[in-house]
């Protein structure tokens, strides 16, 4: 069952990811991204990260993506005009990307041989309680700093979105 769930949602994620890259209309890309995020949430759940799965759905698939779609609608962004990408990017990027993927996969297999299989429920440390305890004790300072970061982001967004600029 775990394997089936993983395979299914991994395929959904990769499929949506590919769709994100190949679609020319931003709204399709955005919807594919939501698909990726949703299936990732299920995978998080499989890994025992229940809080992160929920946060993924609410914050990422919910809030952030709504923001994206809102901007797409606001700007009335249409289909991308076809225009060949520069030769350099193609000539350099494609091989580099392939090499990167190959390298990472190879290294993962090579450096982590015989890793245990993922069993649902084997790790139960990802509860809201556990995360809350960590956040408000050991990671209290980073947590508070984050709030300042968000405040700055809000201010930045307000300043940028004003008319005069």
């Amino acid at each position: 069952m775990d394997a089936l769930l993983f395979l299914f949602f991994a395929l959904v994620a990769v499929g949506c990811g590919i769709n994100l890259v190949v679609q020319t209309h931003p709204i399709s890309s955005a919807l594919s991204l939501i698909g990726v995020m949703g299936s990732l949430a299920v995978l998080y759940l499989l890994l025992g990260a229940e809080f992160m799965a929920m946060a993924q759905l609410i914050v990422y698939a919910g809030a952030i993506m709504v923001l994206f779609i809102f901007v797409i609608m606001l700007l009335n962004a249409g289909v991308e005009r076809k225009k060949g990408t520069s030769m350099l990017v193609k000539a350099l990027g494609v091989p580099a990307l392939v090499a990167f993927l190959g390298m990472v996969s190879y290294l993962i297999q090579r450096l982590m041989p015989g890793t245990e299989n993922v069993t649902f429920g084997a790790f139960q440390g990802g509860t809201v309680q556990a995360i809350g305890r960590k956040l408000f004790t050991e990671y209290l300072l980073p947590f508070e700093v984050t709030s300042v970061l968000i405040l700055i982001a809000i201010l930045g967004a307000v300043v940028l979105a004003r008319k005069e600029i």
Binding site: A3, V104, S105, I108, M112, E116, N117, V118, T119
Partner: peptide, 14 residues
């Protein structure tokens, strides 16, 4: 079940 490395490889692919 699937090995943990598959998750990592999925991460790399994404």
């Amino acid at each position: 079940t699937v090995p943990l490395t598959w998750y990592l490889i999925l991460s790399a692919i994404l």
